[in-house]
Computed example of a mutant assay.
Amino acid sequence: MPKLSVIIPCYFNEDNIPVTSRELVANEVNFPPEVTFEYVFVNDGSGDDTLGALQRAQQAYPGKVRIVDLAANVGSYNAIVAGMAHATGDCMAIITADMQDPPELMVQMYEYWKKGFKLVIGNRKDREEKGLSEVFAKTFHWLMKHLALRNIPEGGFDFVFFDQQVAKEVLKLHERNSNVFYLMVWLGFAYVNIPYVRRKREIGKSRWTLSKKIKLLIDSLLAFSFVPIRAISVVGLGLGLIALLYGLYIIVLKFVSPSEPAGWTALMVVLLFVSAFQMVALGIIGEYVWRGLDAARSRPLYVVRQVYE
């Protein structure tokens, strides 16, 4: 009897939990009768009564809900890793607590898993939410696909169904400041992607702030791409060539017209441009160095306060 563990990271989702748990349990009737279920809710240091709501859900659905209560907020990706470490299913799925991803899609994902696929991705072909969030999401995934992982599907994704083996491989990596979904693709297992339209959030307010989105973009690019470092080398060589040509121009001009030009403006433009590039280059290199230091410390990705079973 295959067991499915559904991992749900929670952060300020007090009002979502009753709806989310009810819809997930109701979706069980769409699966073959031999499938058993486990719902691993990870409370990512929420400041509201998310933990209380999860405990009430656990009482409403005895034997199905497991709560992993983290000591502090560590981010949704680290919370997902915590959920994977505590899940016991033969296959697993990750879904958001706000029900923007359709749980009924997991049935089709399960069928692909039964056929032997280790990873099934629900990729967003469109979303009901428009505006800056949509622009940022499309830009982010375009950059990742063209600068880092070319084999990821179009449209981005954070709704996945995967085998226990994939979870074990991700946990063995001990990756820091990374993107757990891209790690699954990076492992190299053949996958199937199922397009869907992401729903608009109906309950509560998203805590996915602009600063968190920018950090995710930086983390993902630096974790999976050498383009930033390679760009520094290319631009540096280009600036060196320009400086060489300009130096030759000055030398020739000195012999042809000793009194012209004074060159102050041109010199300052070159100096400011090169200085600005050096600061940007140092910043990029610093990001890589900091991540190396962070990995060398070997601090835990999360601390579990308590597990409620």
Rank of each mutant, 00 (worst) to 15 (best):
E28I: 09
A231L: 14
K118V: 01
M279R: 09
L248N: 08
E23P: 02
R305H: 12
V160T: 13
V274E: 02
G188K: 04
G240T: 00
Q59D: 15
V304M: 05
Y112I: 02
I94C: 12
K168M: 08
R66H: 03
G89F: 02
P9N: 11
N179F: 05
A60K: 15
S233P: 00
I232F: 03
N16G: 04
A243V: 02
A79N: 07
Y191L: 04
R207Q: 13
S133P: 00
P195Y: 10
F277A: 01
G63M: 10
Q108R: 12
K118C: 10
V170W: 08
R299M: 12
R150T: 12
G52E: 11
I17P: 05
L119R: 02
K172P: 06
L149Y: 02
G45W: 05
P2L: 10
N43K: 08
F41Y: 15
I95G: 05
W264P: 00
S76C: 12
I8W: 11
L272Y: 02
G247F: 02
N78K: 06
K215I: 00
L70H: 05
Y246A: 03
A97D: 06
M268V: 12
S257H: 14
P153G: 03
E169T: 10
I67P: 05
L272H: 05
L70N: 02
K205D: 11
T96H: 13
A60G: 04
L221Q: 06
Q58N: 03
A167K: 13
M144K: 04
K172T: 09
S178Y: 06
I94W: 04
Y77W: 15
E38Q: 15
Q164S: 15
I8V: 15
P32M: 09
F37L: 09
G156W: 08
K125I: 13
S233I: 09
A26I: 02
Y191I: 05
R127C: 14
L143G: 08
R124C: 05
G131Y: 05
Y112F: 15
L187S: 12
V192M: 07
S220A: 14
Q55G: 06
S133D: 14
A137V: 01
G83R: 01
A167W: 01
T20Q: 08
R199I: 01
K3V: 13
K168A: 13
L216R: 14
S178W: 04
V160G: 01
D90W: 00
A87G: 10
R56M: 13
A71M: 04
P103V: 10
I8R: 04
V6W: 02
R291W: 06
I218C: 10
A93V: 13
G236A: 02
N27T: 14
M109C: 14
E128F: 06
E38L: 09
N123G: 09
A72S: 15
S178Q: 03
R150K: 15
L216V: 01
F140I: 04
K254I: 01
A167H: 01
G75P: 08
V65E: 10
R150V: 06
